[in-house]
């Protein structure tokens, strides 16, 4: 099997698994133990994200995605 075919097969399997799981997406309120941990927050290190976004905003041609792309600074 060529690598590309392996990739296609893997993607197809992944999609099937996803579809079959769709009916049971989500958890009951008493199953939130792990999800409630701060490590699982979408922005678990907000200052790191802010500092990173500022560097990449100044050094690359893209910004935003996670949060507003906005104006901000005349950074060099």
């Amino acid at each position: 099997m060529k690598p590309w075919n392996v990739f296609k097969a893997f993607t197809a399997v992944l999609l099937l698994v996803q579809l079959s799981a769709c009916s049971s997406l989500g958890v009951k309120p008493w199953e939130r133990g792990i999800l409630a941990k701060e490590e699982m927050a979408l922005s678990s290190a907000p200052l790191d994200n802010r500092l990173d976004d500022h560097i990449y905003f100044s050094k690359e041609g893209s910004s935003g995605g996670r949060s507003f792309a906005g104006g901000g600074c005349g950074c060099n």
């Binding site: 997406l25 958890v27 939130r32 133990g33 999800l35 935003g64 507003f68 792309a69 906005g70």
Partner: peptide, 27 residues
């Protein structure tokens, strides 16, 4: 310079161990 940003987000709990976020943003 004036900028208008719009951010549309969808957060979905998949299971006890998996949380997912999709954003579309327009600037």
């Amino acid at each position: 310079k004036d900028t208008v940003d719009l951010l549309l987000g969808l957060t979905q709990v998949i299971n006890r161990n998996w949380l997912m976020q999709f954003n579309y943003s327009l600037s």
